[in-house]
Design a protein around this nucleic acid. Structure first.
Lengths: 221, 221
DNA sequence: TCTGAACGCTACGCTACCGTAGCGTAGCGA
DNA sequence: TCGCTACGCTACGGTAGCGTAGCGTTCAGA
């Protein structure tokens, strides 16, 4: 498929989310190049200026792709923003060392590192802000969010399946307790996220929820 | 003060941050009324539309105060936004029940409630977003942030002074571990913040850092 | 070589918003 | 009553951004 479908494609629906690439849009080499250049530039601009400072004219200037061409691929500024924002995807591996604590530590250390270096970390606040009022962006935000939490969740649920976690423990609560502090430091308190911090968070959460004969939980009920 | 200082005031610096009220601006009853109406409306608009959707024209329309009058009080749109945003202040009491866990629980339960109901909770993402790129807003955000964390920090440091907390525990880390999960649920995962959740977070963090002869920490190192 | 799709370029029309000028009016104290 | 100050109103000038029209150009495949 691909080339053969050219004649039947509806031009109005030519633009598509980044997730469904490889269909109609990949007809021509030029198309692909333009699309990629625009999307890359758009994502850069998004991380620099946020959703509010994002303009099609600026994308056109930086990418070298004519504004008219951009509008031939995306029906509106919003569509382009959405498409660019959808590039935030984690695609992280799920470690399996046998030790829950080590697995979690690996994931969170990597997350902490990304929060300090990756471009998307400066885009997220914009997404969160817009999502607060725009349902469509709320959907995008939800997907990004679940994507970022997925490896952690998987590791925890796997450990639960293996009986390594207290039966009363709730995986969702553990995820919040683990990721929350890192996000907090990155976007709210703006404190650095060092390994010592991550280690403290991880070991506290894990040990609080460990399933053992010897009660791993503290005193006081 | 007040009336007598009228003649000496520099009109260009008449506008002032909300925190320093009661000086020059409080000269006339009319002035105060206008200022309050504008600021209240501005804050409302901010919580509805975010910093990006905030326009002086809209504030004028809603408040019934003429746009020219607004510009007589604030030199620019930005100044008004800053002034309105500065209204986010917690002014929360610092409980002292004698039990660290109860004090922390009280603070966090209240915070969780506010996150779900207070207007400012929908303004915060905007502030965070702008602060990501604007140093002036970063300052505002820092002040708001420290204000929100202050009661918790105070309670924890007081407990540390009383020797109730492990010597190796870091108050800043504990604050992140406590507030982070709540913020995470409000703005990222969008899960509800119920008392059970808060209780779990609190008891885990507290018991992990408790100073006792009987080791309150879990096994594993 | 021919043809058509995709792209570039210029120039728009339109809207929203910022911030200001100018002038008339209302309130309040002396 | 007089005079000062703050306020309201209309009307701007200016800018920025969205999205489109029209037309010429480039490129790749048949």
């Amino acid at each position: 498929m691909g080339k053969g479908t050219r004649g039947h494609a509806q031009p109005a629906r030519r633009w598509a989310a980044a997730s469904e690439e490889g269909d109609v849009a990949a007809v021509d080499g030029r198309v692909r190049r333009s699309r990629d250049r625009v999307l890359t530039t758009a994502f850069e601009l998004l991380s620099e200026s946020g959703v509010g400072g994002f303009t099609v004219d600026e994308v056109a200037r930086r990418s070298g792709v004519a504004k008219t061409t951009i509008y031939r691929h995306w029906p509106s500024r919003e569509a382009l923003v959405i498409d660019a924002a959808s590039r935030i995807s984690a695609e992280q591996e799920v470690p399996d060392t046998g030790s829950l604590e080590e697995d979690v530590m690996a994931i969170l250390a990597n997350l902490g590192y990304l929060l300090g270096t990756a471009r998307w970390s400066s885009v997220v606040p914009s997404i969160v802000d817009v999502a607060e009022r725009d349902p469509e962006f709320a959907g995008i935000h939800g997907r990004i969010q679940r994507g970022h939490a997925a490896p952690l969740r998987k590791v925890i649920e796997r450990a639960a399946g293996r009986g390594l976690i207290s039966a009363t423990a709730d995986p969702a609560t553990m995820v919040s307790a683990l990721i929350g502090p890192l996000y907090y430091r990155r976007w709210f308190s703006r404190e650095p996220i060092d390994d010592q911090f991550v280690k403290t968070i991880v070991s506290n959460v894990i040990s609080s929820h460990r399933a053992t004969g010897v009660r791993g939980r503290g005193p006081h009920a």
